[in-house]
């Protein structure tokens, strides 16, 4: 097991300088995610325009995997339609959990950097927290999302 499979340069970079790391206030939709096991907390905020996610940002604290995953997510999802965002969520989820899938990680662009997480079962929740929180925001859930 090589640590570099998990902490790839792109992950390290997005952890040190997370993109779209800000509050959108007011936001059309938002949700809070929480991982009680490790104390990760993040808020996901988004604005919609003509069915597209026009702006997407996050704030919070967490480990390198959760921060980098959220940062990468904002870049990948910004500008997509809600349907496309949900499809991307499914694909990333399959990639992280190692589910049987037709998706080639290479088609996921930079998000493929998270593929190494599947070798670390205890860290899958770190990478998926932001995605669950995004879906909760789209579903207009009022309760905070938790990984437990």
């Amino acid at each position: 097991m090589d640590l570099r499979d998990l902490y790839q340069d792109i992950i390290v970079d997005h952890n040190r300088s997370p993109r779209n790391f800000r509050l959108i206030d007011p936001a059309d939709l938002q949700a809070q995610g929480y991982n009680p096991l490790c104390g990760d907390k993040l808020g996901v905020y988004l604005n919609l325009r003509d069915g597209r996610i026009e702006d997407l940002a996050f704030q919070g604290s967490g480990c390198a995997i959760s921060v980098a995953s959220a940062s990468l997510m904002t870049e990948a999802v910004k500008g997509t339609s809600e349907t496309e965002a949900r499809k991307l969520y499914e694909q990333v989820h399959d990639m992280l959990t190692g589910a049987e899938t037709d998706v080639d990680p290479m088609d996921l662009g930079k998000l493929a950097a998270l593929a190494g997480v599947r070798e670390y079962p205890s860290r899958v929740k770190c990478a998926s927290l932001c995605w669950h929180t995004l879906i909760a925001a789209l579903d207009k859930q009022s309760d905070a999302v938790t990984t437990e």
Partner: peptide, 23 residues
């Protein structure tokens, strides 16, 4: 500094060192 305990735990584990991380 600039290292979340969860990352510390994973990195130490790959060196064979078992510590607890969390609250």
């Amino acid at each position: 500094e600039r290292a979340h305990p969860h990352d510390i735990g994973t990195i130490l584990d790959t060196e064979g060192v078992a510590v607890r991380t969390g609250h």
